[in-house]
Design a protein around this nucleic acid. Structure first.
Length: 892
RNA sequence: GCCCAGGUGGCGGAAUCGGUAGACGCAGCGGAUUCAAAAUCCGCCGCCGCAAGGUGUGGGGGUUCGAGUCCCCCCCUGGGCACCA
C-alpha cells in the first residue's frame, strides 16, 4: 500500500483544521491507492492515521459556526468493550458525523467513569490495586475505541478517578455542605456480619452475602445526603421543558418523583401519666376518605413505639430482630411475605376516639415517610391481605353502586377513588372522594391532628459509601468542632492509589497517613472521613467538564458556550437514576452560578439494551460462577462449558454486564471484518431504541454489502472520470434510477435527522445499490447518473461506515468535500401511479392510473376493472372508499 | 410486588398519519461459473392447498369500509426499583 503516494496531500498545512476540514473540502483527496479488493484493515488504518494527524475531530471553542454537542454516556472501564458500547458509540458517531457534514462545529468527547465497585472486586480476586487495574483497562479500551474510528475529540478526555477531576466535586461538596444542601442523617444499609462490611444490593443474593454466604442484616449508619427533595417540584415540572426526551423516560421519572397530595394526620398515643403532653403517631395517606375504615396501624421494626413495646415482650423483640434480617432493596421488600405482630399497644383514632391496635409490619420502612402507616383493609389490597392473614377486622367505608362488598375476597372496585362514595362513616356518608378528603382534612386541622400535604415518593440522595475506590468525602471529624469541611485551599483530598482492598471493610480506615489530620478550624488532631462518594456524583457533571477539561476551576465560561448538550445518547437502563441525578446536579451548579441553563440535556436518545444469554454454575455454598456465552456451546440441547464439556445452567437473557460475564467482545469482529463492518452490522441489526438480543449471524451480509459497494465504485472509476448528472435527456431506466436515488435521499435524510432509525437508512441504500447493479449502459448520460448515485450513497453511508466511504468518495471526486446530498424535486415526479383495489377490505387487484387522476376517475376505473367485476358479480357497490395515492375499497 | 417498554416468517427486522403485511439482510433451496471448493452471479422462499383460493402480526374480545397500528382483558420477555454502572 502506498500511504505516502504522490496523490496524498496533507490538509491545511501544519494548523489544526478540526472538523473544518470537511467544510473546507481540503481533506478529501485520495489517501489510498485503490485496489480491486476491499481491504478494510489497510483502509481503516490509513484513514485513522489521517484523522489523527489532521486533528480532524478537534472541536473549536471559538468557531462561529453553529455548535453541536454530541455526547454518549461514558463507559465504566471494566476491561474490554462489549457490543453495548459499540452500539452506543456508533449511534453517537453517526449523529456527530452527520451534523459535521451539515456544517456544524461538532464536539464529541470521551472519558471514563473510573471509580466503582468492579475495581475493588478485581483487587480482591487478583491482588491488583484498583487504581492500576483501572488505568490499564482504560488504556486497552481507549485503543479499542480508536479502532472503531469514532470521531472523538480526544484532547478533552477525562477520568473521574484523577484528582484534577474529583477535586472540583469535593470543592462543590464543601460549598453545598455549608449551604445545607448536603446534610447528615442515619440510613439503612446491608451489613455482612462475617465479612464485617457493607454490601451493595447486587452483592446480596437471596438475603445472603455473596462471598461469605452469611445472612445479611439491616444496619443504621450515619450518611451524607443531598437534599434532592428540595428540587422535586422543579425536577418534575422541568420534564415539560424537554420535548426532545422520549416520553417513556419522562413518564418513568415523573412516576419516580411521585408527587401525591394527601393528608398527614396523627393518632394520639395514650400516656400512663395524664400530666404528660400527648405523644403523636404521624402517618401520611392519599386516602383520607377511608379514615373511618382504619382497623389497625402498622409501624416499622425500628419505630420508637415498637422498641418500647418490645422492651418487656420477648416474642415481639424476636420478631423485630427477624425484620432486621434481609436486604434493604425495595424489590426484595415488595416481594417478600408480608408479616406482622401485634405490639399490644393501641393509639386513639383522631376522629372517632376509638382505640386502634398498633402492629409491627416487616413491610414498613423507618426511613421512608413517617415509618408508620394507617391500614384500611377494606380499601387497600395489601392491607386486605394482611388483615385476612392475621384475622384483623375489615370495615367497609366506601361503596360503589351496583357492587356488593364481601370480606371473602378482594375486588378491584374496593380501591376505586373515582366511583366510590363514603358509607359507615357518620357525617361523611354520601361524600365522594374529593369531598370526603376535604371535609376530613378540615376536621383534622381544627383538632390540630392533621393537614393536607403534598408528598413525594422521591427520597433524599444518600451518597456515603463505605468503600475505598471512590472520591473521598472532604470532611474532617474534630472532637471539638464536629464535621468540618476541608477548606478549598487544602483540596483535593487525594485518594492513595497503592491500596489493595481485601473485602473486609474500607481499607482507608487502616491508613493512618490518610485518616490522621489536623482540624482545619482549631488545628487539633482530627480524623478524616473515610467514606467515599456514590459514583453517580462523578457522572452527574462530567458532561460540563468536557467543555473546559483544563480549567483551573470547576467550570469556566466555555461550559455555558457548549451547554446544554444537544444530543445525549445512552442506555435505557439509566432512564431514572443517572439522568435524574444529572438533572439535579445541573440545577445545583446553576444555583452556585456555574452554569446558566436549567437542564443539561436538550435531546435524549435512549438506546435499547444489548442482551445476551447468561450461564452459571453453583457451588455447594450456593455461590454462582458466571461463564461467558463465548465459552459455552449447546450439545444435545444442553448448554455445556467448552472447556470441560460439563453442563452449565442458563440464567436468562440479560443486559451485557461484568457481573454476569455475558458481555460479547467486539474485538474478534473488528479483527476479522474491520470496524466498518462492525459498525454497519450493529446499526443494521435493529433500530437504536429497541433492545437487541446479540447474535453475530448476519455479519457476513454486512461485510458482503461493503465489498459490493467497493467493487461498484472500482468498476465505475475504471471507466474514467465523469461528472455527476447535471441535466439533459435520460433513457427510461436511468430516469427511473434517478427517481429512486432522490427518493432514497429523501428517506435517508428523514431516517437520520428525525426518526433516528439507521437500519432502514441502510436498507434503503442497499435497495438503491441493487437497482444500480441492474442499470446497464456505458454512455455518458448513464455513467453520469451512476456517478451521481455512487457519490450520494458514499455520502449517505459516511456517518455509519466512515473509513470506506471516505476512501471511495476520494476516488469518485478527488479533493471534494463529503457533504450531505440534497433532493432534486424534479427527479421525484411520476406520470403514473399504482393503486390497490380492495373489495370488502380484501386485496383483489391493482390499477395503474395517471398521477393526476381525480376521485371520480379513479372510482369509475376501479368499478370497471376485472377484479371488481369478478368479486361483486357486477352488482352496484354500497360504498366506495378512495384513498388518494393508496387504494380503492369497494364495499359490496 | 410496583413503574416503563416490547412480542410480526426458520432468524434479525420493515410497514413513518388506520390503507398492498413480511422491505432490507441472514439462513435455506435450485441453477450458472469452477478440475473442485471458496468467492461471485441469477432465481425461489410466511403457513395450508395441485390450483382457485383460504389463512396469518403472543392469546381473547371490541371499534372501523379497512386494524400489526386504536380501545378493553390476559399471557410471555426485557429494563428500572434508590449501594452494579
Amino acid at each position: 500500500m502506498h500511504y505516502d503516494s504522490p496523490r496524498f496531500r496533507h490538509a491545511g498545512g501544519a494548523g489544526s483544521p478540526g472538523w473544518g476540514g470537511i467544510i473546507g473540502g481540503l481533506d478529501f483527496v485520495r489517501f489510498f491507492a485503490m485496489q480491486e479488493k476491499y481491504l478494510p484493515t489497510e483502509i481503516e488504518r490509513a484513514a485513522q492515521e489521517r484523522w489523527a494527524s489532521n486533528q480532524r475531530f478537534r472541536a473549536s471553542d471559538t468557531s462561529d459556526r453553529p455548535r453541536y454537542y454530541c455526547l454518549s454516556m461514558f463507559p465504566y472501564p471494566s476491561g474490554k468493550l462489549h457490543m453495548g458500547h459499540v452500539r452506543n458509540y456508533t449511534i453517537g458517531d453517526v449523529l456527530a458525523r452527520y451534523h459535521a457534514m451539515r456544517g456544524y462545529n461538532v464536539m464529541q468527547p470521551m472519558g471514563w467513569d473510573a471509580f466503582g465497585l468492579p475495581a475493588e472486586n478485581a483487587a480482591i480476586a487478583n491482588g491488583v490495586p484498583p487504581a492500576a487495574w483501572t488505568y490499564s483497562n482504560i488504556d486497552h479500551m481507549r485503543t479499542q475505541l480508536k479502532a472503531l474510528g469514532l470521531a472523538i475529540d480526544w484532547s478533552r478526555e477525562l477520568a473521574t478517578c484523577k484528582p484534577d477531576y474529583y477535586r472540583w466535586e469535593q470543592w462543590l461538596f464543601t460549598r453545598l455542605f455549608e449551604k445545607g444542601v448536603i446534610y447528615k442523617k442515619m440510613a439503612t444499609v446491608n451489613w455482612d456480619p462475617v465479612d464485617q462490611t457493607v454490601l451493595a444490593n447486587e452483592q446480596v443474593i437471596d438475603g445472603r452475602g455473596w462471598r461469605s454466604g452469611a445472612l445479611i442484616e439491616k444496619r443504621e449508619i450515619p450518611m451524607y445526603f443531598f437534599r434532592i427533595t428540595q428540587y422535586a417540584d422543579e425536577l418534575l415540572t422541568g420534564l415539560d421543558t424537554l420535548p426532545g426526551w422520549p416520553e417513556r423516560v419522562k413518564t418513568m421519572q415523573a412516576n419516580w418523583i411521585g408527587k401525591s397530595t394527601g393528608v398527614r394526620l396523627a393518632f394520639k398515643v395514650p400516656q400512663k401519666d395524664p400530666a404528660q403532653p400527648d405523644e403523636l403517631l404521624w402517618v401520611f395517606t392519599t386516602r383520607a376518605d377511608t379514615l373511618m375504615g382504619v382497623t389497625f396501624v402498622a409501624v416499622a421494626a425500628e419505630h420508637p413505639l415498637a422498641t418500647r413495646a418490645a422492651a418487656n415482650n420477648p416474642a415481639l423483640a424476636a420478631f423485630i430482630a427477624e425484620c432486621k434480617q434481609g436486604s434493604v432493596a425495595e424489590a426484595d421488600m415488595a416481594t417478600m411475605e408480608k408479616k406482622g405482630m401485634d405490639t399490644g399497644l393501641t393509639v386513639i383514632h383522631p376522629l372517632t376516639g376509638e382505640a386502634v391496635p398498633v402492629w409491627v409490619g416487616n413491610y414498613v420502612l423507618m426511613s421512608y415517610g413517617e415509618g408508620a402507616v394507617m391500614a384500611v383493609p377494606a380499601h387497600d389490597e395489601r392491607d386486605f391481605g394482611f388483615a385476612k392473614k392475621y384475622r384483623l377486622p375489615i370495615k367497609q367505608v366506601i361503596a360503589v353502586e351496583g357492587e356488593a362488598f364481601s370480606t371473602d375476597a378482594w375486588a378491584e372496585w374496593y380501591g376505586d377513588k373515582q366511583r366510590g362514595v363514603c358509607v359507615n362513616s357518620g357525617k361523611y356518608d354520601g361524600l365522594n372522594y374529593t369531598q370526603a378528603v376535604d371535609a376530613i382534612a378540615a376536621d383534622l386541622e381544627a383538632l390540630g391532628l392533621g393537614e393536607k400535604k403534598t408528598q413525594f415518593r422521591l427520597r433524599d440522595w444518600g451518597i456515603s459509601r463505605q468503600r475505598y475506590w471512590g472520591c473521598p468525602i472532604p470532611i474532617v471529624h474534630c472532637d471539638s468542632c464536629g464535621d468540618v469541611p476541608v477548606p478549598a485551599e487544602q483540596l483535593p483530598v487525594v485518594l492513595p492509589e497503592d491500596v489493595v482492598p481485601d473485602g473486609s471493610g474500607n481499607p482507608l480506615n487502616k491508613r493512618a497517613d490518610f485518616v490522621n489530620c489536623a482540624c482545619p478550624k482549631c488545628g487539633q488532631p482530627a480524623r478524616r472521613e473515610t467514606d467515599t462518594m456514590d459514583t453517580f456524583v462523578e457522572s452527574s457533571w462530567y458532561y460540563a467538564r468536557y467543555a473546559c477539561p483544563d480549567a483551573n476551576q470547576m467550570l469556566d465560561e466555555r461550559a455555558n458556550d457548549w451547554l446544554p448538550v444537544d444530543q445525549y445518547i445512552g442506555g435505557i437502563e439509566h432512564a431514572i437514576l443517572h439522568l435524574l441525578y444529572a438533572r439535579f446536579f445541573h440545577k445545583l451548579m446553576r444555583d452556585e452560578g456555574l452554569v446558566t441553563s436549567d437542564e443539561p440535556f436538550k435531546n435524549l436518545l435512549t438506546q435499547g439494551m444489548v442482551i445476551a444469554d447468561t450461564y452459571y454454575r453453583e457451588d455447594a455454598s450456593g455461590k454462582k460462577t458466571w461463564f461467558n456465552p463465548a465459552d459455552v456451546e449447546t450439545r444435545d440441547g444442553v448448554p455445556v462449558l467448552k472447556a470441560d464439556g460439563q453442563p452449565v445452567i442458563h440464567g436468562g437473557t440479560e443486559k451485557m454486564s461484568k457481573s454476569k460475564n455475558n458481555g460479547v467482545d467486539p474485538q474478534a469482529l473488528i479483527d476479522q471484518y474491520g470496524a466498518d463492518t462492525a459498525r454497519l452490522f450493529t446499526m443494521f441489526a435493529a433500530p437504536p431504541e429497541q433492545s437487541l438480543e446479540w447474535s453475530d449471524a448476519g455479519v457476513e451480509g454486512a461485510n458482503r454489502f461493503l465489498r459490493k459497494l467497493w467493487k461498484a465504485v472500482f468498476d465505475h472509476v475504471q471507466g474514467g472520470a465523469v461528472p455527476a448528472y447535471a441535466g439533459g435527456e435520460l433513457g427510461e431506466a436511468a430516469k427511473t434510477l434517478r427517481r429512486q436515488l432522490h427518493q432514497t435521499i429523501q428517506k435517508v435524510s428523514d431516517d437520520v435527522e428525525r426518526r433516528r432509525q439507521f437500519n432502514t437508512a441502510i436498507a434503503a441504500n442497499m435497495e438503491l445499490m441493487n437497482a444500480l447493479a441492474k442499470l446497464e449502459g456505458a454512455d455518458a448520460a448513464t455513467r453520469s447518473v451512476r456517478q451521481e448515485t455512487l457519490e450520494a450513497v458514499c455520502a449517505m453511508l459516511a456517518p455509519i461506515v466512515p473509513h470506506i466511504c471516505e476512501a471511495l468518495f476520494a476516488e469518485l471526486k478527488p479533493g471534494a468535500a463529503l457533504v450531505w446530498p440534497t433532493v432534486d424535486e424534479a427527479a421525484l415526479v411520476q406520470d403514473e401511479i399504482e393503486l390497490m383495489i380492495q373489495v370488502n377490505g380484501k386485496l383483489r387487484g391493482q390499477l395503474r392510473v395517471p398521477a393526476a387522476a381525480d376521485r371520480a376517475a379513479i372510482e369509475s376505473l376501479a368499478l370497471a376493472s376485472e377484479a371488481v367485476q369478478k368479486h361483486t358479480g357486477g352488482n352496484p357497490p354500497k360504498k366506495v372508499v378512495v384513498v388518494p395515492g393508496r387504494l380503492v375499497n369497494i364495499v359490496a
